[in-house]
Design a protein around this nucleic acid. Sequence first.
DNA 1: CTTGAACTTGACGTTAACGTTAATGGTAAA
DNA 2: TTTACCATTAACGTTAACGTCAAGTTCAAG
Lengths: 135, 135
Amino acid sequence: MSQTEMYSISELARHFEITTRTIRYYEEIGLLTPHRSEGGQRLFSKKEKARLQLVFRGKKYGFSLDEIRDMIQLFDQDPSGRQQLERTIQYGKEKIEEVSSRIEDLIQIRSEMEQYIVDFQKKLSELERDKDEYA
Amino acid sequence: MSQTEMYSISELARHFEITTRTIRYYEEIGLLTPHRSEGGQRLFSKKEKARLQLVFRGKKYGFSLDEIRDMIQLFDQDPSGRQQLERTIQYGKEKIEEVSSRIEDLIQIRSEMEQYIVDFQKKLSELERDKDEYA
DNA sequence: CTTGAACTTGACGTTAACGTTAATGGTAAA
DNA sequence: TTTACCATTAACGTTAACGTCAAGTTCAAG
């Protein structure tokens, strides 16, 4: 039991719809640390798969791979010392603040875009009204 | 009156804490279209300044300069024809959906991070408790 | 045991988003 | 008008995040 199923590099690539090159690159810069088979081929555990998932989410929302690595190391190393725990909590709270700030900005952007749409729709309905008056 | 105050390239750069190179680059790729002085030097109006602001907000949240240019052109050209208005509204709604989706994802990320923090804090307080038991 | 697909490590290529430098021209103050 | 600074274009340099290719290795199927 608990044979912790492993994925090959191409299985993982197919699953996330990326190339194997990307995965190797992520290993190069320290985002992943897969195990190896006897022959030296990469074997990815579920944990590595989850990491990769994290990377993609981070990427999609403006974080650089460097920042992502920091955050992954933060939440991945399972700190046990008291000092380490406190530092992690502190750093984590800061990161949460960053994310919150991004959320607020995006909400701001959205509401501005919505205002544009409202204005355009008003213009459009005025056009329709004018057309009717000629009829 | 209404002397529509103008900014030089370095004034603008200082204001946004970027280099003049960046501003010239943004003009190169069509994000800005400043006026020129007699001698050929760039003069930026308030409108251009506002555009730049938009660019930075877009950048900060994962949009490429290409996407940003599309969005700026969209909301900047003040469409007047009925067809054009309808297209703009349609495209705008799509963009709003994209932004909304990003917001939701970020909220998801945040709540996961918060969960980590909660767990770490629990661990920390257990450590404190154990320490007390020894006292 | 062979074959072919999948894998490995280099190493060089590419694109976006600027940085940097050079050679030159414009401008405001003394 | 000269000084000092700010501006211009053109061109080459840089970094992140991969793409692509070559030359060889491992693995699973028959």
